[in-house]
Design a protein around this nucleic acid. Sequence first.
DNA 1: TTGAAAGCGCTAACAC
DNA 2: GTGTTAGCGCTTTCAA
Lengths: 358, 358
Amino acid sequence: MKTKSKTNPLSITGIAKDLGLSPSTVSRVLAGKAKSFHISEATSKKVLELARRRKFTPNAIARGLRLLKTSTIGVLIPDISNSFYAQLVRTVTEGLRRHGYSIILCDSQDDPALEAQLLELLTGRQVDGLIIAPVGQSSAHLAHFCGGAKPVVMVDRFFKNLKVPYVSSDNYSGARQAMEFFLENGHTRIACLKGLNGTASSDQRLRGYRQTLIDYGLKVDESLICGNAFDEQNGYTAMKQLLNRHRRNFTAVFAMNNLIASGALIALKEHAVKVPRDVSLIAFDEQPYFLHYNPPLTTIAQPLKELGKAIVELLLEQIKSPQARRPRGVLLPTSLVIRESVARIGPPIARKAARPTH
Amino acid sequence: MKTKSKTNPLSITGIAKDLGLSPSTVSRVLAGKAKSFHISEATSKKVLELARRRKFTPNAIARGLRLLKTSTIGVLIPDISNSFYAQLVRTVTEGLRRHGYSIILCDSQDDPALEAQLLELLTGRQVDGLIIAPVGQSSAHLAHFCGGAKPVVMVDRFFKNLKVPYVSSDNYSGARQAMEFFLENGHTRIACLKGLNGTASSDQRLRGYRQTLIDYGLKVDESLICGNAFDEQNGYTAMKQLLNRHRRNFTAVFAMNNLIASGALIALKEHAVKVPRDVSLIAFDEQPYFLHYNPPLTTIAQPLKELGKAIVELLLEQIKSPQARRPRGVLLPTSLVIRESVARIGPPIARKAARPTH
DNA sequence: TTGAAAGCGCTAACAC
DNA sequence: GTGTTAGCGCTTTCAA
């Protein structure tokens, strides 16, 4: 007892040797199972004591190998510097942490090839589940994972042909909210700055844009629909095009996300077009800082907290009962944040058609 | 050859069995070492073929255990939804990926207790290195990791007493840039909205604030220094205080980060104080969207890309040669982004003292 | 050119 | 109450 212990390498086995115990006992104590295994108070205390003194933390890698479970979730998103995803990741990380999971974060940089590569990497790392906000139009490289044994939740964008649980805002209704607010304020010539074709979020929002016009008895002018990416550059370019070709031909602009809106604002400024005096603007994706814009932007807000919660729930559900995997989707409602970027230019436009089945 | 293979569980051993080979051989082929081991073309091809057909990816967990190296880096930051950190994480993730590392992302939520807990978790997960943007004033819980064997890089905030490589903007000089721009425009009564006391970034910026005033022969009015956190709430509260107590007693405000600036703007709006007509404003931490603010904000930009690059470099350097660990710090220059939130209210103020040794 | 064997650190089944 | 043993999937000597 008085002999200086040999200070074995930090491991359960090492601790066990130094204490003259078996690894099992040490493992059980450290796992907090002392009680249920009727391990003596004295032994338990010795173990805890030494572990604390040596600042020993069990090797989760070895544990993972033994248990075939890593308590790790792969999170694969197109761009962590986009604050929509950053906020989502925050909620998800925190939610999963509470359940004992860590996340490996991968950023596909809007590149489907990189996405495919990272997906394989995450598989190799034996993640217990996958959260994917897919990039691009194709789902070929995703298919392999989505039929498989691994729990997967698809975020924000999803594919009809993949039978996977997904979580998303109700992009269709969100677009309708924006459009109806324009119509209430007398706008009928409304331009649309699109995101990437083929992505669920862009396609759904576009559907909402079109259908609302139709429901209100207005015709869809294809020349007012512009752009094909979710970044600022595209917002700028598309807005420029619209301004050069169709100036005075529209009174409002619907931008399909925060970055597109910012790009559009730059173009509008260059053309000395004032918002909302000359053109009204609504952006999809609320950001707190839109409050400070000139003018403060009216937006469609996605329910970030709720999206995060739903993602975690759907994933844990699958992990807990892998058999009961009926793929279910969650569509959460957006909300309209009214600020000052929409001008009233006439009486409200009345709806022509009955509310369509959604 | 024609017999249906037994489709062993996906593992190197399984593949080996099905092919009548040894695990060693399969491992070598899959690791791309076929050449150097003179493995026959035929064998090599068989292995690659089957691996591809079964979509087999080697188990990185098992590999990690065997090699005592996980190719995983722990990244611990106070708030991933703060776009400063989000952008940093993006650069770092991408840089590390190119070198074969994945990251486990942990968000300490500005909570030192959680930070300590996550640090232990990351240790347990056997990360090969640690990137920490520490929270709070105390470094007690960090000390254990920073003398240890694990490579660590401290980001953005750092502690004098810990001998660890760090990467940070030159906060002191950044603050001076802001202050000197105010002085050039005739401001002498400049308020300061601080971040959390005791953090390197807040303390350094405050030092720059004070020293610049002194160098220009102005006295530091402590009642114009307000606030104690890096969030919007604090920006709002501190600005309110200043407005209630000292209105007309200052002509400029230096906000120590983007969130504080946004909070301050809300307070200013509530008091109907116009920027820059009534009060000028400079924010530390450039954000692209500040361009759209009303007015567009003049800011101090941190070199995000370069910070990220330096972090990766310093970390990899340590991983490669663990012995050569002379703790070195990297301090990168900030830059002034001039927009429209600073008004000229008088002739430039002249410097009184010689430029102090930094 | 390939294989056999050992072991990374852990836990669970099965002793006693 | 506690120990023994086996094995998770991989790589790496060492041997042939």
